[in-house]
């Protein structure tokens, strides 16, 4: 078995313009955990975290803007999903 991946380190290779104070994805309060688990598994940026004690932790900074969470849970546990405002968010230098 390989070591547990640290996605934050990978995101560190990227260029981001974080729009402080304007989260472009907002979770509903007390989201259904079965739905949330889908996002834990699917988000390529690993932004949806589930702590050992069962608490959830989510931060939209580091988002790759792929839309996976919107497709999976846009109608269940996401309060808001929109693209970051112009100029903000991830900026692929290579793509």
């Amino acid at each position: 078995m390989n070591k547990v991946v640290n996605v934050d380190v990978k995101l560190g290779a990227n260029k981001f313009h974080v729009d402080e104070g304007h989260a472009h994805i907002i979770l509903k309060d007390n989201p259904d955990l079965n739905e949330y688990r889908k996002l834990v598994n699917a988000c390529p940026a690993g932004l949806y975290k589930l702590e050992d004690d069962g608490t959830i932790r989510f931060d939209s900074a580091g988002c790759l803007e792929c839309g996976t969470c919107k497709f999976l849970c846009g109608e269940t546990i996401l309060e808001k999903w929109e693209y970051p405002r112009g100029t903000f968010g991830v900026e692929y230098r290579y793509g």
Binding site: V7, K10, L11, A13, N14, P44, A45, L64, C66, G67, T68, F71, V90, Y92, R93, Y94, G95
Partner: peptide, 9 residues
């Protein structure tokens, strides 16, 4: 060396 990490649907 990892120089970029990206995601897409």
């Amino acid at each position: 060396k990892l120089i970029e990490y990206s995601g897409h649907v």
